[in-house]
Design a binder for these strands. Structure first.
Lengths: 345, 345
DNA sequence: TAGCGCAACGTTACGGGTAACTCAACGGAA
DNA sequence: TTCCGTTGAGTTACCCGTAACGTTGCGCTA
């Protein structure tokens, strides 16, 4: 099986055609199943395909047809954050079901890395790009515009997107959480997150949060932005830092549930009661929340669906259907019971 | 900026060359920086590259050079399992640092899906493939062999790999855990996992586990394999099912730490003391373990490093360096304190 | 000043498919 | 019988780069 060509060990279409005694074009037609050949010819060709172990060369097909590939470039900050793992899972499954492939790029939240990645990925003639966040470098924006490709900006909703956007308004979400916590009676609130990058949705969220808290008569007394991943242990030691430097805090808001859980564990280790001594609020309503004895105060965002929706918007645009370019996927505050419910408002 | 060609809106090398008043070949040389041109010519060409917003077409380059691309196909079962998210993160970072791209495939643990995905990915002329697991369908194996590409099988160490393999011996790891638990005095042990697929490493692990337990005079009384993801909540309700049907168990072994944590939460909710009333052992030493009050009995596997190593082996092979084809990345039992330590052996 | 070498650049021929066109054979209607 | 449409298949040009070679023109040597 699998007689190889001399050059590169790959069986080409012409080899199949020769072996079947037909022209390259006829073999091509059979393989694409677009008709215009007899049953007998089809069998001849397919038999040789099996015998030689022919694999189509989609790269050459794209090239010949002067079309784009079925690649979709997907840039994600990192996978240590469960949120993005879920988003990616949603994207890849949906893309896969449409016969498209994910070309991954972990761009670590930096514009420069994203820019380099975009340059590389565009050179592979992708069918479209899905990017996390709405801030891109000038050169990146220019390349994206010039490419003329469909682009979905996800996560941080962009009301005037390059092309399309799906996500939530993080400012509003942060604001809602802030208003809720102030409504619970908290006035002296801390924050633990992992980045102060202005391009980061978490920063936008924090801004909305701060606005709501100060507007409601409270104060975000201390904001901690660690140089680490938004995971359990940073939540733990971040809380330690926070409460050591500012013991007067009555509540802590975290960048996500993993960090919040880490914070809860710190509190438990130090004998601090939640919510008796201190309130805890997370973000994302991650799977771990489902098994905790006490419902974690959090903000539900449909991450998997967000990913799926992004992929669907991409597919719609590629098939020429009309697409609503900006989709707010929505969020829902989970009051939970890791904050006191003094029932204000 | 960005004057477009009539056809497909992309600026080609000849357009750049024409605009710069040089031949296509000279422009190509400048862009690849391989010398054979004057400084003046270089500036002329690069100026037009900027002005026209030219993006190289790597697809055409691969095609012309009759080479493979810089794509590496990476198949991962799913990202809901943090273990694989970490592995993927390790792979993509390392590949990226070598100028290669990950083409992702979430193949959901099934051979059929993997086979289809392999067929598709191979048609894009990748430079190599990284596959999770060592079991592949016959047709998949045949395609992989015929491709002649470098292949790294990860996770479940394959001592006679298609090409290369890195991971751990799950049978041995399961065996060690079983021996340890029996050594702790447990005799009536339950298991909660998510799959009975023979192609699954978890199944291999379980086999080793069972062998050690029965060999040590204990019994794996009940094995529960849920049709779900290996996450917190399945761990919770799986434990509920397990302990309801078999209340006599003295210990439960889980497919991973997330499930184990879910199980611990179930126990806590029901007033069962860990390890007083029941022992709990997880697998993977996931990040959450770092913040728990009680060290979770688990098995440490360097997931991130596993991913990085897989990528490094791939890069070594591609650059023609000699590669040790089978690498056991090792594991380490974390005794923890969620099991009794009766101090046997 | 012929002869030579080399830097700098141009020409040509692919590579593996596909679009668009052409052509032959055949069957049915006029 | 003639004409024409349909079916099945072949031909040709082209997609965008690169390898391999060919061609200049200049400076230097003998």
């Amino acid at each position: 099986m699998a007689e190889k060509s001399h050059k590169n060990n790959k069986v080409s279409l012409s080899q199949v055609a020769n072996a079947a005694g037909v022209s390259k074009m006829t073999a091509s037609r059979v393989l694409r199943g677009e008709g215009g050949y007899s049953e007998k010819t089809r069998d001849l060709v397919m038999h040789q395909v099996d015998r030689l172990g022919y694999l189509p060369n989609r790269l050459a097909a794209v090239f010949a047809g002067d079309k784009t590939s079925t690649f979709i470039g997907v840039s994600i900050p990192d996978l240590g954050n469960e949120v993005f793992a879920q988003v990616l899972e949603g994207i890849d499954h949906k893309l896969g079901s449409f016969g498209h492939q994910t070309v991954l790029g972990l761009t670590q939240h930096t514009e420069k890395e994203e820019e380099d990645w975009i340059h590389t990925v565009l050179s592979w003639q992708p069918a479209g790009l899905i990017l996390t966040g709405r801030f891109h470098s000038t050169r990146a924006t220019e390349m994206l515009r010039n490419s003329g490709l469909p682009i979905v900006e996800i996560w941080d909703l962009n009301s005037s997107p390059l092309d399309m956007s799906v996500g939530i308004n993080h400012f509003d979400a942060g604001f809602d959480m802030g208003r809720f916590l102030v409504g619970c009676g908290y006035r002296n609130i801390g924050y633990v997150g992992t980045s102060h990058d202005t391009a980061n949705a978490a920063t936008t969220r924090l801004a909305g949060f701060v606005k709501a808290v100060t507007g409601g008569g409270g104060e975000v007394t201390k904001q901690l932005c660690l140089h680490d991943t938004a995971a359990y242990y940073p939540g733990y030691y971040g809380t330690e830092q926070l409460l050591t430097s500012t013991p007067t805090l009555d509540c802590v808001f975290y960048q996500n549930d993993a960090m919040a859980f880490g914070g809860m564990q710190y509190c438990a280790a130090k004998g601090l009661k939640v919510p008796g001594d201190i309130g805890i609020a997370g973000w994302g309503d991650l799977p771990i929340a489902a098994v905790l004895p006490r419902r974690l105060t959090s903000m539900h965002v449909p991450h998997l669906r967000l990913g799926q929706t992004a992929a669907e918007m991409m597919m719609s645009r590629l098939s020429g259907e009309p697409v609503q370019p900006v989709k707010d996927i929505g969020f829902q505050l989970i009051p939970g019971s890791t904050v006191k419910n003094v029932g204000l408002r």
